[in-house]
Structures are given as structure tokens and as C-alpha cells.
Amino acid sequence: MTETTPRTNNARSLLVIGGTSDMGRAVAAAYAEMGWTIALAARDIEAAGRDAADIRTRVEAARVAVHHLDILETDTFGAFLDGLDTLPDTVVCVVGMLGDQERAQDDPHYAARVMRTNFEGPALLLEMLARRFADRGRGLIVGVSSVAGDRGRASNYVYGSGKAGLTAYLSGLRNRLSATDVRVVTVKPGFVRTKMTAGMDLVGPLTATPQAVAARIAALQSRRADVIYVLRAWWPIMSIIRAIPETVFKKLKL
């Protein structure tokens, strides 16, 4: 009557970097539904524990482990990876910090934290994972970047520059590993209704749910892609925005 998916020890495994974000939770739940073993890496281990309990309650017999990771403590990345039960088959990095643009303009330490959270931490960690995946001979790296990284805008360029760095990094990594079975995918969600965007006025048709983002990411297990916009409407929009000459763009209020 009740169908249960047998979960054996050779189930495939997913590592979510930023496991307590709304997108991270949704990705973890989507993979748990597919029978994968889940490792949630997050700074707030207590919150991650609650999210793990949520997935275990929703998905019968789901296996979810929780690991502490601070994306700004780059020195700990090696020990973190060694501490995982197994090298994951797939890693999804959803770490991000929108921050407050005006505060970042005034406070260099704060700006550095936004940049490091969006770029330095994720890039260095994914590089280390890429090496281990390459040594094994396969793996899928999904980096969640942002349309904000496609072009710098006055309203969020500190965040956007970090995401631009991540987008470039993922592009290079993909280029380097193209001859191997390690795949690198850049995901640009557009607007997503999450904690990060709570209270913001988002344009309905351009706004995805965390579950929709998760579904697109989970589909990457069986579908090849390099760079995806979660909602396809974003592709023409960003193509136009990228094509606007700088002399014009600099005067626009977007």
C-alpha cells in the first residue's frame, strides 16, 4: 500500500553547501525524494539539524547528515571534506549573502564579507571538490550564482560582483574539466521567494519558488546543461541587459 523506496548503502549522495537556506532545503528534499543520501553543510548546526529532521519526517527512511561549515573559514575546507562519510556524487552550492548595498559602500569589512561569502568561499571549496571529483573520474558540481552577476548595477553591485566572480570561476572550471566526466553547471535562479528576498516586491512571472529551483537542479542528474536560468524568461531579459552599451547602461536605473 505505502510505497517505500529501498535505500541501500550504495545510494548516491548529495552535499548541499548552505543547507539551511530555503533553496538548500528544497534541493535536499528533492534529492531525498529520489532516494539519495544527503549531507547538509551549514554554519548554524542547530538550524541544520531542524532542517534535517524536516526532511526525515517528510521522506520516509531518508538519510540526512549535518556538518558544520563556515564558508568564510577557508582554512577548514580540507578538514571538512575529509570529515564527510563519503565523497559526494553531486555537490550543490547555494551559499549567498545579498547584504545591504549602502552599508557595503560605507563599510569595507562588511563589503569584504559579502564578496567573500558569494565568491571566495564557494570558489575555493568547489575547486577542492573539483580536484577530488577529477581524481575519482566523475561528479557533478552545481553552483548557484545569480543574474545579478551578469552585469553590475548601482542597487546591488557588491553582491553582484561576488556572483560575477563565481560565474566566471564556474565557467573556467567547466572549461578545464570539459574533457572529463566531471560536469560543472551554473544555475541563475532570477528572483526566488526566500528569506533573502522577504519583504521585497518581486515581479510575479519572473519569480520562482525554491521548489522550482530544486526541481531544475535535480533534473540536471539526467539532463546535460552548462548554464541555466531557472525561469526561461530570464534568458532574453539578461541577453538584452548584457547587450546594452555601457555609455547607455551607466545612465539607466534598473
Binding site: 531542524r50 532542517d51 529532521a53 524536516d54 519526517t57 528569506k195
Partner: peptide, 18 residues
Amino acid sequence: TALDRMLAFDPETGILTA
């Protein structure tokens, strides 16, 4: 509405904690 986690379920008693 963001307090949306299910915390535990016991199939013996049918008690859901959420």
C-alpha cells in the same frame, strides 16, 4: 508561514510534530 518544518512523526501512534 516560514515556520514550515515538520519535526518528527511516529507511525505507531500517528503523532506528527510540526
